Simulated scan of single mutants.
Amino acid sequence: MATLTDDKTRQALLNRLRRAEGQLRGLQRMIEEGQSCLDIAGQLAAVRKALDSTHAKLTVAYMEQELGGRMPATDRSRQQFSEVLSDVQTLLGKLR
């Protein structure tokens, strides 16, 4: 399987993961401090959503990289391809 070649996309994904990592550390702190289960569950849901969103972005970036390089370079086909990828990202975001 290919690796991401776009540095900007790779950095954006890393930034998202670092934010999720911070949220996880916050969750650990919440549990250590004995905060309410309802508050912890809310934070867990936020971390899950952040990771799901990162996964969707990774999937779309991969599709764009791998399929985009195999498509004709006309403006119309590129625009249609971008629209489809946008729809795919929206669909992936609704999986949970």
Rank of each mutant, 00 (worst) to 15 (best):
M1F: 13
A2E: 12
A2V: 13
L4W: 02
L4G: 01
T5H: 10
D6W: 02
K8L: 12
K8V: 14
K8A: 15
T9F: 11
A12D: 05
A12H: 09
N15G: 11
L17F: 01
R19L: 13
L24E: 09
G26L: 01
G26F: 00
L27F: 05
R29N: 10
R29C: 03
M30E: 04
I31C: 02
I31Y: 01
I31L: 07
I31A: 03
E33W: 00
G34N: 02
Q35T: 00
S36A: 04
C37K: 11
L38D: 15
D39V: 14
D39C: 05
A41F: 10
G42W: 06
Q43F: 00
L44F: 08
A45P: 07
A46F: 06
A46L: 11
A46S: 10
V47P: 01
R48M: 09
R48P: 05
K49T: 12
K49S: 11
K49W: 11
A50S: 12
S53A: 14
T54G: 12
T54I: 03
T54Y: 07
H55P: 05
L58H: 06
A61W: 02
Q65T: 04
Q65L: 05
E66C: 08
E66G: 07
E66N: 09
L67I: 13
G69T: 02
G69A: 05
R70H: 12
R70A: 15
R70V: 11
M71L: 15
A73F: 07
A73N: 10
D75W: 13
R76I: 14
S77K: 15
Q79L: 11
F81C: 08
F81N: 06
E83H: 10
V84D: 11
S86P: 00
S86K: 04
S86H: 12
D87H: 12
V88Q: 03
Q89C: 08
T90P: 03
T90D: 13
R96H: 12
